[in-house]
Amino acid sequence: MIKLHFFLLHIVTAFALIFPPFCNGKVMMEYIGATGKPVTFDAVPIEPNITFHFILSFAIDADPSGNPQNGTFSPYWVPTLTPDSIAAIKSTHPNVKALASLSGWSLQNKVLRWYTPSNPQLWISNAFASLKSIITTYHLDGIDVDYENFPKHTESFAYCIGELITLLKNQSVVTVATIAPFYSTSAPYVDLFNQYGNAIDYVNHQFYTDKVKTPQAYLEAFRNRTEMYGKDKVLPSYEVDGRGIQGDAFFVALDLLEENGFDVNGVMIFSADASASGGYCYERKSQAFLLNSTSSA
């Protein structure tokens, strides 16, 4: 009887790995690893019926001193997020995907900026090769684009990033691509989205930078951003103990979005690093909202 029990357990486990649990079309996005805190995946609550994206922060086109490397990206997220830990969390939770976020605000004290490559094709080639290596090593599924500082002329951004995403998808290196604009970076991201929107799965707009404090103001900000990027791909976002709307007002805002005809098909949170000390309450509440939401996925 004991042998039969273990045999059946192995069968069930294998079945779960081959046939992941049904997901309701909703997605949870969680940035992780940007602050240097020794955060891990294991403590983060993950609902099995939601597609859960961990966004590792950050892969950067720079050396440790912040000097640009012409498209050669390196991983700079916290060392506790190892390739083995990513493989393990994906094995335990088949609904989990992992993405590398590109750039971010700074590396140490060096502010990072998009720069116009002298040879865009070489930049794209270097970026593809270096990201493919990182994605393979860390068992990743996609990329998130989070450049936050731009020169006066940004035409090269849409072309280089759009072609990079397209190449990564066409070569089956990634299955997911997201972008993370905020209020002062709208122009280059709208240009990117207008040209390559079909290759972009979600828009992780950083609504906490819009400085709105109330649900009604959040609704108006969300409506404005969906006019830029479309209703289907923009996700509401929340910064833990940070800027913008805070506490239960965020969930009132989510209800208000649905009451005004927006399908809330996902939530983005920045970040797991900040949530750890509070027991990940916003991750729990966000996933509960998505599971109970009546909007279509």
Results as ranks from 00 to 15, higher is better:
residue 29 M to F: 12
residue 265 N to P: 00
residue 74 S to T: 11
residue 212 V to D: 08
residue 263 D to W: 03
residue 238 Y to M: 00
residue 104 G to T: 01
residue 199 A to W: 15
residue 282 Y to I: 06
residue 208 Y to H: 09
residue 86 I to D: 10
residue 221 A to H: 13
residue 224 N to W: 05
residue 276 A to Y: 09
residue 145 V to K: 01
residue 55 I to L: 12
residue 185 T to V: 14
residue 20 P to N: 07
residue 105 W to I: 02
residue 165 I to E: 05
residue 264 V to I: 01
residue 93 H to R: 05
residue 26 K to A: 10
residue 290 L to S: 12
residue 132 K to M: 06
residue 30 E to I: 03
residue 235 L to E: 07
residue 235 L to C: 04
residue 183 Y to L: 14
residue 229 Y to R: 03
residue 73 F to I: 00
residue 261 G to N: 13
residue 91 S to A: 14
residue 161 I to A: 01
residue 264 V to K: 01
residue 6 F to M: 05
residue 76 Y to L: 09
residue 62 A to G: 10
residue 294 T to N: 12
residue 263 D to H: 10
residue 24 N to P: 05
residue 47 E to F: 11
residue 230 G to N: 09
residue 2 I to A: 15
residue 135 I to A: 00
residue 195 Q to E: 14
residue 103 S to H: 00
residue 174 V to R: 14
residue 184 S to N: 12
residue 49 N to V: 04
residue 90 K to R: 08
residue 69 Q to Y: 06
residue 44 V to N: 08
residue 63 D to P: 11
residue 247 G to N: 09
residue 123 W to S: 01
residue 197 G to N: 13
residue 251 F to L: 02
residue 235 L to T: 13
residue 260 N to C: 08
residue 230 G to C: 01
residue 19 F to Q: 14
residue 63 D to Y: 12
residue 150 F to G: 02
residue 152 K to N: 09
residue 274 A to R: 01
residue 269 I to Q: 07
residue 236 P to N: 02
residue 171 Q to L: 09
residue 11 I to M: 14
residue 137 T to Q: 11
residue 170 N to E: 10
residue 140 L to S: 04
residue 197 G to Q: 07
residue 253 A to W: 12
residue 273 D to E: 05
residue 47 E to T: 13
residue 226 T to E: 10
residue 34 A to K: 11
residue 18 I to W: 12
residue 284 R to A: 11
residue 45 P to Y: 01
residue 42 D to K: 10
residue 266 G to C: 12
residue 193 F to R: 08
residue 234 V to Y: 11
residue 128 F to Y: 07
residue 1 M to Y: 15
residue 8 L to P: 08
residue 219 L to A: 15
residue 266 G to R: 02
residue 35 T to H: 11
residue 40 T to H: 08
residue 134 I to Q: 04
residue 285 K to S: 13
residue 288 A to E: 09
residue 186 S to Y: 07
residue 99 L to D: 03
residue 24 N to L: 12
residue 19 F to W: 06
residue 259 E to P: 00
residue 261 G to H: 11
residue 279 G to Y: 02
residue 186 S to N: 15
residue 238 Y to S: 01
residue 240 V to N: 10
residue 142 G to Y: 13
residue 185 T to R: 06
residue 42 D to T: 13
residue 149 N to Q: 07
residue 295 S to M: 08
residue 274 A to C: 02
residue 92 T to S: 12
residue 153 H to M: 05
residue 139 H to K: 08
residue 103 S to L: 01
residue 177 A to E: 14
residue 243 R to Q: 15
residue 104 G to K: 00
residue 57 S to E: 09
residue 289 F to C: 06
residue 35 T to E: 14
residue 268 M to V: 07
residue 31 Y to M: 14
residue 2 I to Q: 14
residue 78 V to A: 11
residue 197 G to S: 07
residue 29 M to C: 13
residue 228 M to Y: 14
residue 275 S to C: 03
residue 203 V to D: 09
residue 187 A to K: 14
residue 11 I to L: 15
residue 64 P to R: 01
residue 228 M to I: 11
residue 61 D to N: 06
residue 263 D to P: 03
residue 107 L to V: 00
